[in-house]
């Protein structure tokens, strides 16, 4: 099945072939697997241990965040 998922990653429209998980999306987008990153799907936190098992659905909004300066 070559279903295409229409996702939004950090606010940007992104299309990926399905099925996809959080882990496969991060790999496909070439995020550093050892990087200090955290992920939310549809504004809900997805812990690193679940990235492999969390399936993405058409229309999902994904946020990938990293450390930054803050007050």
């Amino acid at each position: 099945m070559n279903e295409v998922l229409h996702l939004t990653v950090n606010g940007e429209p992104t299309r990926v072939p399905g099925p996809a998980s959080v882990a496969s999306l991060l790999r496909r987008l070439a995020y550093d697997p050892a990087g200090h990153l955290a992920v939310a799907v549809n504004k809900t936190f997805v812990p690193r241990a679940q990235h492999q098992h969390h399936p993405l659905r058409d229309g999902d909004e994904i946020d990938v965040v990293a450390p930054m300066q803050g007050g």
């Binding site: 950090n10 606010g11 990087g35 946020d63 965040v65 990293a66 930054m68 300066q69």
Partner: peptide, 17 residues
Amino acid sequence: VGLRRQAPGERAGEDFW
């Protein structure tokens, strides 16, 4: 410290870390 969205390949987060 804070968090921000990071694009693939961006190093700012790791440098700050």
